[in-house]
Simulated assay, not measured.
Amino acid sequence: MKRLMYLAFLFFTVVASAQMKKNNLLNWHTNLEEAQAISKENDKPILLYFTGSDWCAPCKMLKEDFFESPKFKEKAKDLVLVVIDYPRKVDLLSQKQLDYNKTVIAQYNKQQTFPKILMLNPRGKELGKISGYSPSRDTSEHFKFLDEHL
């Protein structure tokens, strides 16, 4: 009987933990047009994030310090999130996704600045942008940017 209760407890703990992790994840889109449709439907601005996930040190720090913070996760509820990755390792994305990302970069990030965050309206019009991330790891300017556009 103790074994059965222990197994039941273990099962429910694992399920609850998995649910908490799922609820903590952000819903990042990889297609801007799909995000625009969601943005129109929900009347939310689009946060478009350009990253070099496997080579850009400031991108990695920004992800950890800003995007993974509880404060950002709360603010993200009022945004449609889009990530456009430009990795150097060709096997991180499908060729189709990489080609698509290059077209979005050509339109919205011509200087290929990484990391770069843009705020867009549902039609894709740029409302604001912030580029780079300091080695001091100060996210205050990034949160100020969000506050200005929410």
Rank of each mutant, 00 (worst) to 15 (best):
M1K: 06
M1N: 07
K2W: 07
K2L: 14
R3C: 02
R3D: 04
Y6M: 12
Y6G: 01
Y6K: 10
L7S: 07
F11M: 12
F12Y: 03
V14A: 11
V14H: 04
V15I: 15
A16E: 09
A18Q: 04
A18V: 05
Q19I: 08
M20E: 04
M20L: 05
M20H: 01
K21G: 00
K21E: 10
K22V: 03
N23H: 06
N23G: 01
N24F: 01
N24D: 08
N24Y: 02
N24L: 05
L26I: 06
N27H: 09
N27G: 02
H29D: 10
E33D: 09
E34N: 10
A35S: 13
Q36H: 04
P45G: 10
I46F: 05
L48G: 02
F50Y: 13
T51N: 13
T51Q: 14
W55R: 06
W55V: 04
C56N: 13
A57Y: 05
A57H: 03
P58H: 08
C59Y: 06
K60F: 02
K60N: 07
L62C: 09
E64C: 01
F66W: 11
E68S: 13
E68P: 06
F72H: 01
K73I: 07
E74I: 12
E74N: 08
K75F: 03
A76C: 02
K77Q: 15
D78W: 00
D78M: 05
L79V: 01
L79P: 01
L79C: 01
L79H: 01
V80I: 13
Y86S: 14
Y86C: 02
R88E: 05
R88C: 00
R88Y: 02
R88T: 02
K89E: 08
K89P: 00
V90E: 13
V90M: 07
D91H: 07
L93D: 11
S94M: 03
L98Y: 12
D99K: 15
Y100A: 01
Y100F: 03
K102N: 15
T103N: 10
T103I: 07
T103Q: 13
V104S: 06
I105M: 14
I105W: 15
Q107K: 15
Q107R: 15
Y108F: 04
N109I: 08
K110S: 13
Q111P: 00
Q111T: 04
Q111H: 02
Q112Y: 07
Q112N: 09
T113M: 13
T113I: 13
T113R: 08
P115V: 12
L118C: 12
M119V: 15
M119F: 14
N121R: 11
P122M: 09
R123S: 14
G124W: 06
E126N: 12
E126L: 09
K129L: 08
K129E: 12
K129D: 08
S131L: 04
G132K: 04
G132D: 08
G132C: 05
Y133D: 07
P135D: 03
S136L: 11
S136P: 00
D138T: 12
D138P: 10
S140Y: 13
E141N: 12
H142T: 04
H142R: 06
H142C: 02
H142N: 15
K144F: 06
K144M: 04
D147T: 03
